[in-house]
Design a protein around this nucleic acid. Sequence first.
DNA 1: CACTTGACCTGTCCGC
DNA 2: TGCGGACAGGTCAAGT
Length: 292
Amino acid sequence: MGGTMPELPEVTVIVKGLDKKLKGLTFAGVEYDWPKKFYWNGFSMKDLKGAKVKKVERIGKVVKIETDRAFTILIHLKLTGQLIYQDEKTRIAGGHPIPPLNSPVPNKTTRATFEFTGGGHLYFNDLRKFGWVKIVHSDQGSVDSAIGKLGPDALEISYKDFAQRLKKKPNSRIKKLLMDQAFVSGIGNIYSDEALWRAKIHPARSVASLSEVEIKALHKGINDAMKLAISKGGSSANSFVGSGGGKGLFLSFAKAYHMTGRPCERCGALIVRKKMDGRSAHFCPACQRLEP
DNA sequence: CACTTGACCTGTCCGC
DNA sequence: TGCGGACAGGTCAAGT
């Protein structure tokens, strides 16, 4: 099980692993060192102990652990979260690659440790402490502020629905809109860059300027980029390596993201990075043009 | 209102 | 090598 970062593909990979591992396990307790981002919402340790995991699934970028009790556990990895399950025989890990996913646990980034009867542990690590854990009432889990307003899932939205929703936002810049979780859920900075590169669309283009052909390419680009990443994350022990040559991270599937200064795979022009709407956009200045 | 900026945190990398 | 600044995958609140 490998992993890179917590956007839709990475959350998908870790959630699939956890669903297999945790299903049927019984919580023995939890410890945490960052109460600020651990919300009980009226539930308590007494409720947690003895509860069984029914299912683990992904809602947007949120990890949802359903139990056989009245509560559900929601976890958001934000920028630097990791989830690592470990018992005597197994270890599965996913999320942000720092510290390395094979580091011993717990460690100084460990914010919460769920213990299961039988000795397994689920570690929630988060270097920057932006992530959170919420225990929510099962009936209210789907309307929690974190997931209640999410748009259609980026991997599931049809072309038709995608195009229709775009029509309602003609003035938005496309990259920013792609990352808006209320528009579609699951896409972050990496996959907006990757999808736009595939569709040959400049990140600052307005929605109104996009042709039907481009919108089709973008819909396909989202799917292709994410599915490729899921397949890499699911199959490779290390989908990132420290590169000797410069950049700290190398993502095996990336065509644009973090490829600043490297030749575009398609046309050879050098990939550039530009600050846009508070985030950095990576794109090919030759095949992703602002003006036709 | 819609849109932009700052805040939340800690660590790494890059240039001087 | 040391030091300061930019930057990091996300989201929400506050400000304009």
